[in-house]
Design a binder for these strands. Structure first.
Lengths: 351, 351
DNA sequence: AACCTCTACGGACACGTGTCCGCGTCAAGT
DNA sequence: ACTTGACGCGGACACGTGTCCGTAGAGGTT
């Protein structure tokens, strides 16, 4: 008696045809219900809906997309998932896109695998590709050219200065200006750089921000900043900051304020100076960058710079959404986000 | 002259037919090359390969999968992306799966949206679904039942004790036993619990580990552990740990060792005790859980428990890969991972 | 010149879906 | 009883792909 165990052992419904048979309707009728077409009795609609939630049947997305419906998927390409800021960006972007009905296909772009990643996105016919992080310049530019050739919109978050690329980037220079302003107001005139190496600076880099902030206060960059970047045993940022602090502590004429590349280096430096018997901020001031949670969990808490990630991602989402479905723009879109100083206990008046 | 600008303005190739026309071969021939079928002249193969890398053409994955080829995609369902351990698990799993040729479709399972997430995975015909994190029990059990009904394999990482679910979980009880053993050997006999509330314990919970560790050392659980969990103003773990430490510090007869639920609580507690003028580990010992990077960046560094995430994910990947393509197993697979004590500076001999 | 082998061609079908369209059915209205 | 309208049915096609198969042309051998 086949009908008897029909109730307990329901077969796996793999197609609309299967499902329609199960409901007792024609495939086309079911399809009409699923796509909200008019001309159907309410009773029929209810019948399908109920069976739908009972069986959990879902139309094959591949067939649907093949028929021409949007894939409603974007590709997100990550440099890595190692640091909190990029993870936070990913999480926020994913949430914003989901709220707009877009799924995220996420891949990590190992050096050299970029081609495969982008090919995979293209084969999935994603509606846009977002890159988060900092990549090899030639590689990412080649990938973007490929995307453009395929008519697929793209956006790069946090890799400024790429050719022909739509970018949303944090103005780290402005962040540095805010840091210098804060330290200057506290009376500091000489600054140690932790993990920030002197060299050529592009438009919104930390260094250019340092330069302009010092210039605006009639200070000479080379005279009032010191970088001990010769120690290239940089394993991880915390240890590196600690070692740098050790070297600085041994110097007779050291600066009164230290500007860290990121929070880990700054926190390592705090520790390094403490190990050398110095007190922060009594003897010297230290700043970080990124405003990670950890900044509020150390003694002293860290003065740092917040990336305004929500603003960044909102801007990014806007750029992506605005491009969807339209022909590709000719001129690249470039947006800049201004970060924000966050005061902690690690900065104080110069002695 | 149409052929003249053929070189600079190449049209977007959207199908194998387009591509074949572009190469000057039959669609079927191109398809044969793409799928590595025999009976083709090397010269022809090379011609297609070259055009392939020049144009960057990719077959429509949806059509390919529709034809019956594997989707080679797994769904990963995250509780959130807020804490480092889950992010690390995600990153590792994604990497391992990619190395096996599997893409990851990642979604965040907001309470209530679980149904949609799983439906989406099913509509994409993923080959398996992995849950990472801790969910509402009824909700995740309902989702798993749905997956089973659809014949799709699943795995839950870090949510122990679910009915009919394949799980890989950390044996937090064993972690607690290691912690107690370490503290006991240092001479501690009374323990303060930070964020760990007394109550019913299931098999591999922290509490059951505490119980058995104390029992093995002939100590009475209720007599030698104190929990101040009445302060339910738990905003974030760090502040909560700090407040708990403040309350404990005010007690005349406080324990000599404190066991934290996680690293953030423990680090907050360190800070709280320091604020009260106590020294760690001179006056008291503190342990965390998770071995986040931050543990090595505080003063003192934290004694904690490592989750052995690589081992966890390796086991998870094995379970998933073993299930792919086969009919569903009847008996749930349950694996347990043993964590590992990591010594820091925050624990020392009892006074 | 006749024959054979190698290889590309191109028609055909299936996969699961959305959509169009003509046809049948059934109930309500006249 | 007849007309009419509402509504479900089922055939057909297209989407892009993989694969089978019969055919044809090119090139080499006898």
């Amino acid at each position: 008696m086949p009908p008897s165990n029909k109730a307990n052992v329901s077969p796996v419904l793999r197609s609309t045809a299967d499902f329609a048979r199960h409901v007792g309707l024609a495939r086309t009728t079911v399809s009409r219900v699923l796509n909200g077409q008019p001309g159907l009795k309410q009773k029929t609609i209810d019948r399908v809906q109920r069976a739908l939630s009972e069986t959990g049947f879902t139309p094959n997305a591949h067939a649907v997309h093949l028929k021409g419906k949007r894939t409603s998927t974007i590709g997100i390409c990550m440099e890595d998932l190692a640091t909190p800021p990029v993870v936070q960006k990913l999480a926020t972007l994913q949430r914003v896109m989901r709220a707009r009905g877009l799924s995220s296909l996420i891949e990590v772009f190992n050096p050299g695998s970029g081609r495969d990643v982008v090919r995979h996105f293209l084969s999935m016919r994603v509606e846009a590709v977002v890159f988060i992080g900092h990549f090899l310049r030639e590689e990412i530019e080649a990938r973007i050219a490929e995307l453009i050739a395929h008519g697929t919109p793209h956006l790069v978050i946090d890799h400024f200065g790429l050719k022909n690329a739509n970018t949303v980037s944090l103005d780290r220079g402005a962040g540095m200006e805010a840091v210098i302003e804060h330290l200057f107001d506290l009376g500091h005139r000489r600054f140690g750089l932790l993990g920030i190496s002197k060299g050529p600076a592009s438009k919104i880099d930390r260094l250019s921000g340092l330069h302009s902030a010092l210039r605006a206060r009639k200070l000479d960059f080379d005279a009032c900043t010191i970088s001990l970047d010769h120690l290239h045993e940089r394993q991880n940022d915390f240890e590196y900051g600690r070692k740098l602090a050790g070297s600085f502590a041994a110097q007779p004429d050291r600066p009164s304020a230290f500007v860290g590349l990121n929070d880990a280096i700054a926190i390592g430096a705090v520790r390094g100076f403490q190990d050398a018997g110095l007190k922060v901020p009594r003897d010297l001031s230290i700043t970080g960058f990124n405003n990670q949670e950890i900044c509020h969990m150390t003694s002293p808490t860290l003065t740092t710079v917040d990336q305004n990630i929500d603003t960044t991602i909102a801007a990014a989402a806007e750029v992506v959404l605005e491009q969807l479905g339209k022909p590709l723009r000719l001129k690249p879109i470039i947006k800049t986000i201004t970060p924000q100083l966050v005061l902690g206990e690690s900065t104080g008046p110069a002695r």
